[in-house]
Design a protein around this nucleic acid. Structure first.
Lengths: 198, 198
DNA sequence: GTCTATACTCGGATAGAC
DNA sequence: GTCTATCCGAGTATAGAC
């Protein structure tokens, strides 16, 4: 790769990281191209040397993140672990994703519904369905193997897990009192065994 | 109350209900006064006969809802029920609020962070702190009374409950397969006893 | 209580100089 | 790769007629 191209790619990535932070903090629609340019120390027009549009930026941010995330889920699904271990692994990797890609997770949480209504972002709905399949598979295997309660409402449980895990991006801050591993541990304890005194 | 005033108040409420629905569906910033006027069958300028600004509308919507919600929490706190019953009541009334005021809950979930940064909406942060106090009190009483595990991380548990309960507004639809009471029951089972086979 | 018309501001995007 | 300058559309809000 020639030096110019490499330097250009780096600048692109810097700009994407800045955009991701602002999209996460203020929402996609509520972030202006001038906001992004200001934060990058350039003028808004200059952004269009790197990207077609504001939409292109969020598109690239989300696609890159989701490709990585679902590769991880697929690894868990394909593994030879027992059902309970698979569920634990899936929960842990989700909290790890919040730790390592919190802006991307926040954008997905806050703006995916709205963005998904445009043809360009149709893949967001597909990824949503894919995520549902992953969890429904894990939970169904859990019930069938006897690891989970036989009377579990699998669909409702899927929603509770999905919501509780991802919504943590609203309050989790890396470097705070709790590591993402510790949060995952605590969460798994509550999820698997409940909060009532045994 | 004279008839004119009453009719006027009714029209106001109609307009607020329309605005609440749109704010909930598309977000506050993403909803235009023309959207609201269109849905009401009038022109945008006419809205300003009833309200000072778009902000005034969301302000009135949120204040009315929160006053009612926190009155309910206070009732639970002040009751003579045992700690576990209080927690169950607080969870149930939250799901009932989602059923009966889903637009208001959705607005609070999606826009409170952003709105709260303006002086006019400083009360949103106060209400947030108040909600935290309610739950921390309930959970602490639960641990002290022996109803809940002694090793529970109360702060983390508070966050999980708050998030899981309110985020249900994203998928709950009244008249769907599950009543809000049934969802509350299932959720309390998971929360108190976990999903693992006993 | 609603309409017509319009002022004002802000946001996304473009063209071409440097 | 960034800047200057600018277009165009959209959004909030206002004034005054009906």
């Amino acid at each position: 790769m020639p030096r110019e191209t490499q330097a250009s790619a780096t600048r692109r990535d810097e700009l994407l990281a800045i955009a991701a932070r602002l999209f996460a903090e203020k929402g996609f629609k509520n972030t202006t191209v001038r906001d992004i340019a200001d934060a990058a120390g350039i003028l808004s027009g200059s952004l269009y040397h790197h990207f077609d549009s504001k939409e292109s930026m969020v598109d690239e941010i989300l696609q890159t993140f989701q490709a990585e995330l679902f590769a991880s889920y697929d690894e868990v699904l394909a593994s030879a672990d027992d059902p309970r271990t698979k569920i634990e692994r899936a929960v842990r990797l989700s909290f790890a994703a919040i730790d390592q890609h919190r802006h991307e997770v926040a954008i997905f949480q806050n703006d995916a519904d709205h963005l998904g209504s445009f043809p360009r972002f149709a893949y967001l709905a597909e990824r949503n369905a894919q995520s549902r399949n992953v969890w429904m598979t894990l939970l169904t295997e859990g019930v069938e193997s006897g690891a989970l309660r036989q009377d579990l409402d699998v669909t409702l449980t899927y929603r509770f897990i999905r919501d509780t895990v991802w919504v943590a991006v609203r309050w989790y801050r890396p470097g705070g009192g709790l590591s993402h591993e510790a949060i995952a541990d605590q969460y798994l304890t509550i999820l698997l065994d409940g909060i009532a005194d045994a």
